[in-house]
Write a protein that binds this DNA or RNA. Structure first.
Lengths: 262, 262
DNA sequence: CGCCTTTGTGTTATTATTCAATACTTCTTA
DNA sequence: TAAGAAGTATTGAATAATAACACAAAGGCG
């Protein structure tokens, strides 16, 4: 009998394995088999088999005494698997390094991933929140400057689709969750050429972003700079960092022209 | 009937899925199902099912016209899964940022992973080889300064075991592959307190590294700085960067004391 | 331009592999 | 120290993965 899902080419075991990895999130650094079972919806046996397998493969550490599992170093290798042949990132890297030095600010490359945006390059210049210096972090598209900047350059139908599928809950008291209000923000981004937000995801965080166009003229990434009040004001950010992100993003875009996929 | 391998708790399908991801390496940015089958040792059907599954899960892109697969952005997220609760990296980050500015050099954190060492933090200061700016890159322990520095602080039996299991082939004409010669290098590292190599993995690359001790006094990581001839000489590197890596690493180590795992 | 090779897709019966139930062991804590 | 919870190990049953095959589509070559 074929699998229930209808797709005979879908290997369910593989999905379950990834579900186990996904069980380790910001609030769950380590898990025992019972917790893994709870969090993944697998039964205890399955949780046992999959965590054991991931351990043998080197993707989960296992504490010999507590018998609890933790994500392992080897997972970082997957980032390299993707980034190694990422032409966008390759062109962006030197320009980001230079741009970060202009005002001694952290600068990031964020790539579009549907309702989320994922940071693929981060060049930290000063200590902020540790998580904010890490590659691979996903943030919601609807309330981050990188995400909004990208939305502002996408077809309206796609934008509505993404906004509707987003879990638009307020991360701070200032988070804009209303679709009409978001659409108005997108208009302003198109006028300004960049996006500047304040306190959308984190209190006191100002975030400025401008989009990168790939060789086919499509938008799928943004250059983003985070800074913080009271050290910076929104006005200074718009005046100094807006043009900086725009120039950097434009430079990357022009580097990408005429380098079509192989 | 139980699986052949002897381990009834090992899910083979999961391993096969990861084998498919591993098929994408430095020399294989995109693969078709036939190539995947060849490179993984799976038959064509299996290659088809696993690549399809990975595609549905969002870990492989599929080009609509060529039907070839490519690693997807979502893979970068696994790096975050590991790094998020990496206390070592958390303490290292601010110190690395500061240390990189001293001589305006790229600076990295490399973590031990048996015969390889994996870069988990990279703070680039100038454009060099793109791959050398990427998190998740693995390099051989036996011929890199970070790896050698770590070996120099491990029990001799472990060292021999690792060296013997390493594929010690010469990456450059200068690569030291002879075990006795490597052991002599390790002695010098213990005397100096840091490791400085020239042209071991890449021609013209000078690499300086010093080890970090975790809260239990064990060694599992190194602070590493790469620079290049002719801009730098090995003597300058030893004189200026040796102490810098040592101080940085020592600072991180002391930050880790008294912060045992939760 | 049409033939031939190569590569990707879809379907099937077969059975090996995963599964879930259960018993056992170890650790925690009251 | 006993009770309970969490992790481990075993096993028969059957599901879900398999491998072989047939089909379709693309690419190369004369």
């Amino acid at each position: 009998m074929p699998p229930a899902g209808g797709d005979t080419l879908f290997v369910g075991s593989l999905e379950k394995g990834f579900r186990v990895l996904a069980a380790f999130d910001d609030n769950h650094p380590t898990l025992g088999v019972t917790e893994i079972a709870q969090r993944t919806g697998l039964d205890k046996s399955a949780a046992q088999r999959f965590s054991n397998t991931l351990h043998k493969l080197g993707y989960l550490e296992k504490d010999a005494t507590t018998r609890r599992y933790t994500p392992a170093r080897k997972l970082v290798g997957f980032a390299y698997t993707y980034m190694r042949h990422n032409r966008l990132a390759e062109r962006a890297m030197p320009r980001l390094i230079d741009a970060g030095k202009v005002h001694n600010t952290t600068i990031n490359l964020a790539e579009f991933m549907d309702t989320d945006v994922i940071y693929t390059i981060r060049i930290p210049q000063q200590t902020t929140a540790f998580a904010a210096t890490l590659t691979g972090r996903c943030v919601p598209t609807f309330c981050t400057s990188a995400g909004l900047a990208i939305l502002a350059h996408m077809p309206e139908a796609d934008v509505m689709d993404i906004l509707k599928r987003s879990d638009r809950h307020p991360y701070t008291p200032r988070t804009v969750t209303d679709i009409d209000q978001i659409l108005r923000i997108l208009e302003r981004i198109r006028r300004d050429g960049f996006c500047a937000t304040y306190g959308q995801l984190l209190p006191r965080e100002i975030s400025v972003a401008a989009v990168v166009f790939d060789s086919s003229g499509k938008v799928s990434a943004a250059v983003q700079i985070p800074i913080y009040r009271p050290k910076w004001t929104l006005e200074d950010a718009r005046r100094l960092l807006g043009p900086l992100t725009v120039d950097t993003a434009r430079g990357i875009s022009s580097d990408l022209v005429g380098t079509p996929p192989p």
